[in-house]
Design a protein around this nucleic acid. Sequence first.
RNA 1: GCCCGGGUGGCGGAAUUGGUAGACGCUGCGGACUUAAAAUCCGUUUUCCGUAAGGAAGUGUGGGUUCAAGUCCCACCCCGGGCACCA
Length: 815
Amino acid sequence: MDSTYDPDRIESEAQRYWRDSRAFEVDEQEGAEKFYCLTMFPYPSGKLHMGHVRVLTISDVLARFQRMQGRHVLQPMGWDAFGMPAENAAIKNDLAPSDWTYSNIAHMRGQMDRLGFAYDWSREVTTCKPEYYRWEQWLFTKLFEKGLVYRQNSVVNWDPVDQTVLANEQVIDGRGWRSGALVERREIPQWFMRITAYADELLDELDSMDGWPSSVRTMQRNWIGRSEGIEIDFDVDGHAEPLTVYTTRPDTLYGVTYLAVAAEHPLAVAAANDNPELADFLRECQQSASSEAHLETMPKKGMALGIDVIHPLTGERIPLWVANFVLMAYGTGAVMAVPAHDQRDWEFARQYGLPITQVIAPADGAEIDLDSAAWTSKDGVCVNSDSYDGLDFAAAFAAISTALEQDGRGRKRVNYRLRDWGVSRQRYWGTPIPIIYCDKCGAVPVPEDDLPVVLPEGLKVTGAGSPLKDLDEFVNTTCPVCGGPAHRETDTFDTFVESSWYFARYTSPDAMAMVDEREKYWMPVDQYIGGVEHAILHLLYARFFQKLMRDVGLSSVDEPFTRLLTQGMVLKDGAKMSKNKGNTVDPQTLVDRYGADTVRLFMIFAAPPEQALEWSDDGVAGASRFLKRLWTAVATHINDASDVRKANSLSDAGTALRRKTHETIAKVSDDIERRMTFNTAVAAVMELTNTIGKFEPQTLADRDARQEALESTVLLLAPVVPHLAHALWSTLGHPNAVIDAPWPSVDDSALTRDDMEIVLQVNGKLRGRMHVPADAAKEAVIAAAEADENVQRFVADKPIRKTIYVPGKLVNLVV
RNA sequence: GCCCGGGUGGCGGAAUUGGUAGACGCUGCGGACUUAAAAUCCGUUUUCCGUAAGGAAGUGUGGGUUCAAGUCCCACCCCGGGCACCA
């Protein structure tokens, strides 16, 4: 055997074998245990970056591991091909988004193959192709019929100079990224999907989704934000219609000292008609970006409207304000303020000199200090609340709610923080929303026979609005209902729509329906892997789509992803690798220099998958060195011509090697399958390799033990460094490819030890160690511990008060 | 601002159920091989005291629970992710 490790040669040989044998193309083999392993598909941004390499490698390790477990593994790959970067690149380079996108896809597919990922390319999905997006257009029209989509005004970031809608990402310090103009909030009509209709199901199922990280489940729970409260009507002085607010704290109703409405609220707009100062303030309120982070951190401002409302229980007059932090889109666009028991209300009241009235007090009668902060605890009782004084939160909630309901001034209501999903985007490079507007018939969904509504490719983008608007042949059409003149919707879908169902399309990529019966074989996804930045939006939308598909009869699966692994970012010098920061490392350079296996090994070894990974050039070199050492160890074994004709029994070192081999098999299996800590799995294999390197066979049995150790090493590493494993497996004498070899199993008899190490402590501090026979009795171990010389020094003549014995581990003497 | 993570040697990280802190790798230092260098191999590498045996301190900060805390509890500081039009 050649003792030089030549990654270029063995990697191209292994890849040729996989390609020629179509090793990773799978069909629906009934009776076989399937395993659907999925990576969040990439946006085709140009070339692979380290973040891609990391997530793709993690996924590939799991897919190959499961295959060696005997499962029938599907690992597909595709492209999240619509999105803003293609439009930006198109403006910059004066070419069509489609050309840019397709050429990126071709390049990145080649890079993936060079890294040796085990994909079934026959199922490749590209979301910008009509044969893909036609089915989400179809689903949208079905949802239209079911009343699960609707059109409503909603707020966008408006750039008054470029006359265009901006993404949050394009708003920098409140200004448009290209024009530098102050961004305004503006309301435009948009399409929504009624995700709130599924809020309870999306919430409740989280409890049983054991395969997901608890942090992601908690984030989703908080995002859905189910709350139980009450809607309360306040009569408005001089108006026939009452003003309705929603609150989860009706127990504090007697502490309401003002109400506040959003700047867009009709009451505020009406009051501004004869109040120029107020009109100025409303204009100022609209001069702001629309993201929640921005709204929550901006200085809180308000103005009195000069209107009073009437407290529903006391009949008191309460001033009505307009405040910039109240949003028209949330709840009713109005809030009741209880400054004594809500921190934001407290700060606003202090700022504008509004009264602060305590209505909740600690049950133990302790004093609270309302001069320094609001007292927001629910563990108190009502005070200053007429007949409700003395009631705790639950009792007051029930009593006040009932009183309001009986009076017709309140209704119990479950509310969600979750809002319906606005899917309209005023962009060109996306899926056309399949709606036709007719003056007579209104908004009409495109009939099934007319789908897909094909996005004209090859259009030039200028940055000022969608070019679709100017394309008469696209816009002008006839009404499917009345046949009269009509025009098409020119907005496209949020790209999250495409990524909400691609996992289902992989199961039947050529179906003449959204999916076909093959979906039943593969779904749900057994293992999903992707960035934690998708913990809420993408993963919630995908769960929602799964339920939509189920409810139109396309699937019987409730939840799309059984297990979820969220991998961390790749950092360099403590910051995320990005072009902006100029700290990127091109994976291609490293693959060219060290080979794919080295890059894969470093990615897996440098950090546990869920944590951020700090890039290290030296670490990559170290990974390469390890692979060379392993190659050398196999070469040494194969080329070993030394004469060992001694008795066919294991030496002590041989017994130890076999124990190490089987301990390693046990640890690596557990690390990959249960713990998903691939870094410690690799560390364990490195330890085994170090042991093999030092091992000198004395007998024929010793040499067999080394063969077994090397074969185990190759099998255990095969998911991580598949090319090297492919070559070495053959070298070690196996005619079948390592991808078809079974995962090694543990020989329990090799694991037995005849002695154990016991740690000796005095008062919990380490004072020594000793070896005792594995079957030593508790009393004997303790007696030996007390007799230890160093232990004696610390015990001296002090009486032993307590003895703790942890079997097989330690003895702690408390003196 | 709100929600979710994270903080351990010179560095990346390990310590799985409250039981030996620092596995494995990198870097540095010392040595072998070499005319030399690279590569490779061997040794060493938390800090402080000590010739050594051994001892003391130590897991972001301050408290607490326990025979025993990186791990559990309370308070705080710093860093990262998300916040609905980045994907």
